[in-house]
């Protein structure tokens, strides 16, 4: 157990170093993109040098690059103040900076967007795992039969259709033509305040995302199950006289699904960077839409923050996956 603790702390230290390097790389945006952040702060048609220079000092863009970066890092841990006196703005730790387009602390903006993306990603993940694993196992079991062929067609459609098309078609048919679901109210409501409303908002985005991923997972699970069932230890299980249910449910699936844990973890982490198309189609105020807006508005602090966040999630997810994998496969335990 102490071995595990040492392992995790070692990995956390490495994770921290990786994130530091990523943050530095991302912060280079400020230094080398051909935009002057101070000019951007006062809007597209602003030509008043006085306001620009005042903002430059207020937001700290007058300092050299390395000093800005240092202030950014300190702000992550200690929070940060912009300006002085009555007009001062305080962004509490962890401060990712101040969005001069949205006039808000970036951390607060992320705090609003993150739950939306989290809800979208978790819901979609659950759906596509159920669908992908279920269909994959069934088509492996009934290989070459009608069900397998049907799932191959599903896979073909799922991988071919882009999410924005699936999403729009779902809205057009399910909501507008067939009235199967009420027209979702704009924006996003918390599940703790209005659960049915939240469900109504999220169900189509979940299906849209899950459809694309479930197709890939079906294919992968199918080939994993087929491959595993030719293993010697499956023959041993059969030679012992175990029931087919036990052989599939216990012996085959455990080995076949181990790599799927890795795949699902990384795909989930990828989605946490923001499912930009899906969020845009369904008008969900998640991280994807936040990043998209930031890119279109040259809102540099938000771009830095969302990029760093996405990187952090991927790196941390990798650590979690390694720990989960050790739980699944005793051979990699430390």
């Amino acid at each position: 157990m102490s071995g595990l603790l040492a392992y995790v702390s070692r990995r956390l230290a490495v994770t921290f170093l990786i994130l530091l390097a990523v943050s530095f790389a991302v912060y280079l945006i400020f230094a080398f993109l051909p935009f002057d952040p101070a000019t951007l702060t006062c809007g597209k048609n602003c030509n008043d040098p006085g306001i620009i220079e005042a903002n430059r000092i207020r937001l700290g863009y007058d300092k050299p690059f390395y000093e800005q970066y240092w202030v950014f890092i300190v702000g992550l841990f200690a929070g940060r103040n912009y300006g002085e006196g009555a007009a001062a703005i305080h962004c509490a730790a962890p401060s990712f900076g101040y969005s001069f387009q949205q006039h808000a602390c970036v951390t607060d903006l992320i705090g609003e967007a993150l739950p939306v993306t989290l809800a979208l990603a978790i819901g979609a993940l659950v759906l596509w795992l159920i669908l992908g694993i279920g269909l994959g196992v069934l088509s492996a079991r009934f290989r070459g039969r009608v069900l397998d062929t049907a799932s191959t067609i599903f896979v073909l459609i799922g991988t071919s259709l882009p999410t924005f098309l699936t999403g729009l078609m779902l809205i057009i048919f399910v909501v507008i033509k067939w009235h199967l679901l009420p027209f979702p109210a704009g924006g996003y409501s918390s599940p703790f305040e209005d659960f049915p409303g939240w469900l109504n908002t999220m169900i189509l985005p979940w299906i849209t995302l899950a459809f694309a991923y479930a197709a890939l997972y079906t294919r992968f699970v199918r080939s994993q199950v087929i491959e595993t069932s030719t293993e010697d230890y499956i023959r041993t299980a059969r030679a012992k006289g175990l029931s087919e249910g036990l052989i599939l449910g216990k012996h085959t699936l455990r080995a076949a699904l181990a790599p799927i844990a890795t795949m699902a973890g990384l795909d989930f982490a990828g989605l946490m960077g923001g499912a930009i198309l899906t969020e845009a189609v369904f008008n969900l105020p998640g991280l994807g839409r936040l990043s998209l807006g930031a890119v279109l508005d040259y809102d540099l602090p938000i771009i830095v923050a969302t990029t760093l966040l996405a990187a952090a999630i991927v790196v941390i997810m990798n650590l979690v996956l390694d720990l989960v994998y050790a739980f699944i496969d005793p051979r990699v335990r430390v």
């Binding site: 293993e231 010697d232 230890y233 023959r235 041993t236 299980a237 059969r238 030679a239 012992k240 006289g241 175990l242 029931s243 087919e244 012996h251 455990r254 080995a255 181990a258 699944i328 496969d329 005793p330 051979r331």
Partner: peptide
């Protein structure tokens, strides 16, 4: 299949060539 399953491992047991791959690595 269900009847032969009851014979396997009970009346007739088997051991195989490679004991590494014949045992399930996860259990």
């Amino acid at each position: 299949p269900e009847d032969i399953r009851k014979i396997r491992g009970k009346d007739i047991a088997m051991i195989f060539q490679d004991p590494m791959s014949a045992l399930h690595p996860f259990y």
